[in-house]
Every structure is written in C-alpha cells, then in structure tokens.
Simulated scan of single mutants.
Amino acid sequence: MEIKNKNIQLQDLGTKDYKDTWDYQEELFDAIIQIKRKNRNDNLSIETPNHFLFVEHPHVYTLGKSGDLNNLLLDEKQLVDKGITFHKINRGGDITYHGFGQIVGYPILDLDNFFNDIGKYMRSLEETIIRVLAEYGIKGERSKGETGVWLDVGTPFARKICALGVRSSRWVTMHGFALNANTNLGYFDHIIPCGIRGKAVTSMEVELGSTLNIEEVKSKILKHFTDVFEVNFVNDQVNI
C-alpha cells in the first residue's frame, strides 16, 4: 500500500539571505528526490517528508527561468547603490521583489503525498491566500492567465497582492508565494512586476491603512493551508 505522508515540517527562518535560503530549499528538495529514486530503484516504500519554510528576505529581485531581464529597470551599479541583490533562479514566472515586511512561504512538498496536479497545487496556494485576506475584509481574486492573488480584477484598478512562482520535478515542489503584508511597495517601481505592464502592486497595509501583525498573518496562513491541503504541521525549528 502506497504511503501518503500528510505531515509537514514547519520552519520559520526569520530574516535570511535569499541565496542561503535557496540553497537550503535545494537541499531539502534534493533529499526528497533521492528518497523517491531509491524507492523506485529498490522497490521500497520509504516515507517522503514535506517541508514548509517561512522567511523574510532582505531586498532582492529574482528572475524566473523564462523571465525577461529587460523587466529589471536598474543596472548593476544602481542595484549596489540601493542595497538590492539580484538572482536568476529556477522557478517559473518572471521578475519579482522580496523584502522586509513581506511574508514568503516555501512549501517543499512531495505531491505524491497529496495530488498529482500542478495546476491544482497553484490554485490551492492561491485559495489559501484568498481565505487569509478574507479574514481581514480584503477580497482576493484570481486573474485569468495571471498567476497569483489580485484585487479588483477586471477593472482599471487591478493590483496584485501576492505573487506565486514554483519549480516542480518528479512531483516535488519548491519556491512558493510572497504575500505583501507591510511591504515597501516603492521597490516594485524598479521592475515590471511578473513582466505584466500596466497593473499595480499593493499590500495588506496599504489596503487596510494600518500595519499588520506579521505573526498573526502567518498563523492564519497555516490555518488555511491546513484546511485547503488537508495536512498537519509539525514544528521543526532548526538553525541553518
């Protein structure tokens, strides 16, 4: 009988450099892949783990594997002057910004434990954030053909509040979502966010007119992620 592990090991990394966190994601990702290879090659049934990382990154722009570098509007010197790092990475999507006051979540899941459908996975991440926003009286929506969570879709005031971008191999995921809670939106002025022209970016702080309690928002994310994905979170706080 196939083993389905519905437990997710939760780690909150606090504020951490993007590249260091990316490397750590890769370690966890590769470890799951290796277990799956061993199971297939040796006809074993070793349980694969699932992970969820919360993190806040210092100022950084990341460009997805199919992204257009022209969507970065700063040169190398300007990046240095503004204290912003840049990485071209292996997720889907185009360019985005990570920084202080933003809640970044990286689910590193073996989807064989849940469902084998990347589209459903992306919609489930969006649904989690939509439910969180609803608790604050913010109506989050999906925008056809545009990944992420948006407000006022179909109007001239459409704006993105949460970006999504993932990588998947052998049904194992990495990267994830970035929810603008108390984010300084000025940093989005130096890019064409997600490669989409003519649409704005917003934050929960801007929409509500008050600063959010980040830990409270994280707890709501975990609550709704648990319901949407039908999982159990296990605290696994370690230093890396």
Results as ranks from 00 to 15, higher is better:
I221L: 13
R91Y: 08
V132H: 07
T155Y: 06
V132M: 10
V206E: 07
G165R: 02
E135Y: 02
C162L: 01
S124M: 09
D152R: 04
V149Y: 06
T96K: 04
I130Y: 03
I103N: 02
P156G: 12
S210E: 06
E127Q: 15
F100P: 12
K199L: 13
H175K: 03
M174C: 02
D189R: 02
I108E: 04
R159Y: 06
K144S: 15
D189P: 02
K220A: 04
R170C: 10
W171N: 11
G176Q: 06
L111W: 07
L133V: 06
T147V: 11
E216K: 15
R142Q: 11
L179T: 02
C194F: 10
L185F: 12
N113C: 14
Y136G: 11
I214D: 00
K199I: 02
Y187Q: 00
E215A: 14
M174Q: 09
G119F: 04
R123P: 08
I161K: 03
L151E: 05
T155E: 12
M204I: 09
L125G: 09
F177M: 15
S168N: 10
C162N: 07
N213H: 13
E207C: 12
T147P: 09
T173P: 06
G154W: 09
D110F: 11
L109P: 00
G140N: 06
A200F: 05
D152W: 03
G101N: 07
I95M: 05
W150T: 05
I196F: 10
E141L: 04
N213T: 11
I196Y: 08
H190P: 00
P156A: 14
V153S: 08
I130W: 01
I95E: 00
V104Q: 03
R170I: 01
N213S: 12
V132I: 09
K220N: 09
L151C: 12
E141M: 09
V166S: 13
R170Y: 12
R142T: 14
G119I: 04
L125C: 15
Y121P: 13
S219W: 00
I103M: 03
G92K: 06
D189L: 05
A163P: 07
L151V: 14
R167I: 00
T128C: 15
K144G: 10
H98L: 05
I89N: 11
N182Y: 08
V149N: 08
D110K: 13
L212Q: 15
E205K: 15
T211E: 00
C194A: 12
R170K: 15
A178N: 02
T173I: 02
M122L: 15
M204F: 06
E205G: 08
I192G: 01
S203I: 13
G195C: 10
V217I: 14
T211C: 04
N180P: 12
N116C: 14
T211W: 00
C162P: 08
D189W: 07
G92W: 03
E146P: 00
G145Y: 08
F188N: 00
N180I: 13
V172D: 06
G195V: 11
G140C: 12
P107Q: 09
A158V: 14
Y136Q: 07
